[in-house]
């Protein structure tokens, strides 16, 4: 038997839901824009009250921050769009990184993905790379960046690169040490008008570079830059510098000037505490603006952690647009959570 006291007429349910909105209006008026107010559902039916709160938010320019079981938290005004705060070039999916392989002819002591001659290849493969390039072009990606490992260890690298440059401007990261014989022939078959080579050089003189990357590697890399230039390629140089070597920057830039590397193509990146590096800056999904990164194992948040589970996003590379959307969604959620944390702990 149902007792009358357990029955709530539709009319009463509507009225109690409206009571929640009245509480919200009053609470919102007491917090500054960007602040939040939490109200309880009381005797209102949760679903009906949430529907009404949602409609009220849409009509008044506020937004639900958290819909809990017994309460709803509403933000006064709308939180700033984290994507709108980014430079368009930083938008997730503006560029897509692809690890072509993980094996390498070097075993750098700071490699963020633990590449070495002993590392398993884990190649992305021609078919997948072609599909990535195709879907990236359709997803408004403006550039593909191929990295490893050392891509020039792959016997089909020319085909791989050309499948990318056929669709989008592409940058190929390399240590620049393998431009000879058949590998030089592969380089010559790449599209100079659409491909930029990015060679890793860490210092103006051999000592520091070789201490991380192996004896003789500096001279070969510098020679590789000369070869690439002779072959008509645009060359960028990327240096990985620990904090205590940042004072070396000025002479380093001067050195790169002598190699005819334009200043805009001289990239300095901080050492990350990732992979086999035992020092460097800590990079987490909360502190990193994502750069969509694809490996044979799936999609990662950022190339600096493409061998780390904490930045693994999804095993599903395709549809690529979905993977980009998922990273974008997570980025927005992280930023909003960080903003909320800042609101919660203003004095701590």
């Amino acid at each position: 038997m149902v007792t009358t006291s357990s029955l709530v007429s539709p009319s009463t349910a509507e009225h109690t839901a409206m009571g929640v909105v009245l509480d919200l209006i009053e609470g919102i008026g007491r917090v500054p824009t960007g602040g939040t107010v939490t109200v309880g559902f009381g005797h209102a039916h949760r679903v009906a009250a949430l529907d009404l709160v949602e409609a009220w938010c849409a009509a008044t320019g506020n937004e639900i921050a958290v819909a809990a079981q017994l309460t709803v938290t509403v933000r006064h005004g709308r939180a700033p769009d984290p994507l709108a705060q980014l430079d368009p070039a930083q938008r997730p999916g503006a560029r897509v990184w692809v690890y072509t392989n993980f094996d390498c002819n070097l075993a750098c002591d700071y490699c963020c993905v633990r590449s070495s001659p002993k590392a398993a290849r884990r190649a992305i493969g021609a078919d997948r790379l072609q599909q990535i390039a195709s879907e990236a072009a359709d997803a408004d990606v403006s550039e593909l960046i191929l990295t490893g490992g050392e891509p020039f260890l792959l016997n089909d690298l020319d085909d791989l690169v050309n499948s990318c440059t056929d669709r989008l401007p592409t940058t190929l990261l390399t240590n620049g040490m393998l431009f000879r014989g058949t590998r030089l022939e592969r380089l010559r078959r790449m599209d100079r008008s659409r491909l930029t080579l990015q060679v890793s050089v860490d210092s103006a003189t051999p000592a520091i570079h070789d201490s991380h990357r192996g004896t003789g590697s500096w001279a070969k890399a510098v020679n590789g830059i000369r070869i690439a230039h002779e072959e008509g390629f645009r060359v960028k140089v990327a240096a990985t510098l620990p904090a205590d070597q940042m004072h070396e920057l000025d002479p380093f830039h001067v050195f790169l000037d002598t190699l005819a590397i334009s200043r805009e193509d001289q990239v300095i990146r901080a050492l990350a505490h990732r992979g086999v590096s035992d020092s460097g800056i800590e990079l987490t999904v909360n502190s990193l603006i994502p750069e969509v990164t694809i490996t044979a194992d799936g999609v990662y948040w950022h190339p600096v952690a493409a061998d780390h589970d904490d930045q693994f996003v999804t095993r599903d590379i395709f549809p690529l647009a979905d993977a980009i959307a998922e990273i974008t969604r997570r980025f927005v959620a992280h930023r909003r959570a960080a903003d909320s944390a800042a609101e919660w702990f203003p004095c701590a």
């Binding site: 009319s11 509507e14 009225h15 839901a17 409206m18 009245l22 409609a55």
Partner: peptide, 10 residues
């Protein structure tokens, strides 16, 4: 409060 349109029954 939505001019009566948000929740016509209220």
């Amino acid at each position: 409060i939505g001019r009566g349109e948000l929740l016509p029954g209220a």
